[in-house]
Design a protein around this nucleic acid. Structure first.
Length: 207
DNA sequence: GTCAAGATTAGT
DNA sequence: CTAATCTTGACG
């Protein structure tokens, strides 16, 4: 058995490249209508702000991405394609728009509610994708800028550090320059069935 | 005001 | 491979 992460402000006051793989195994908890929904993080991606052509913050601060420039440990939630919401954890320091996108969860609690919210009959791939997990947990822009260390509505909790191998690959669906497209900044638990399905899953293994 | 594009997903 | 669906940001 390994140690739990310390999810204090200092934890998020570092580079997303260090934080992202360490968020694997941590819990994302949502309290919705008095019900506790929770999942274990199994897939994430790091975004490096102004230095990253794939980041929403590449061209500076706007009304939409403002939360990314704010305090670490808070959420950045955006709507994509007019349909899906996606959740990021903002990383420090304040002023640098760095963040980690939560891409997939292994459902742990409130699974029936998640299934209903997703309008899905089976329980597979319930939270396997950034848009899916937000739908399952009822996450939308109302939670943009929310403190994810506050222990209310939506928060992160330490989990057991996974013994599974951590794989990396380029990020899914990004545009930008070659560096952004090729950067191996997606991190996921090797072989975990709740990781989103993509050809990139066959890529490099490390960590 | 107008317009193109988007860190996705489900279905053909 | 493509449609769905609508907010945002850039530009005039």
């Amino acid at each position: 058995m390994e140690n739990s992460r310390q999810l204090n402000p200092a934890f998020f006051q570092r580079s997303p490249l260090d934080i992202a793989p360490e968020l694997l195994g941590c819990l994302l908890v949502r309290e919705l209508d008095g019900v506790r929904l929770a999942g274990r993080i199994v897939e994430v991606e790091a975004y490096m702000g102004e230095e990253d052509a794939a980041s929403h913050a590449y061209r500076g601060e706007t009304a939409r991405n403002r939360a990314m420039f704010g305090p670490p440990g808070h959420g950045y939630v955006y709507l994509i394609y007019g349909i899906h919401h996606c959740l990021n954890v903002v990383c420090g320091p304040v002023g640098l728009a760095r963040a980690v996108l939560i891409r997939a969860l292994e459902p742990l609690a409130g699974i029936e509610v998640m299934r209903e919210r997703r309008g899905q009959e089976n329980m597979r791939a319930l939270c396997s994708g950034p848009g899916k997990l937000c739908q399952a947990l009822g996450i939308d822009r109302a939670l943009d800028g929310h403190d994810l260390l506050g222990g209310s509505a939506l928060w992160l909790e330490p989990g057991v550090v996974p013994g599974d191998a951590i794989c990396t690959s380029p990020r899914v669906g990004v545009r930008g320059d070659e560096a952004a497209i090729n950067a191996p900044w997606r991190f996921f638990l090797s072989g975990n069935p709740d990781v989103s399905r993509t050809p990139l899953n066959r890529s490099q293994r490390n960590s």
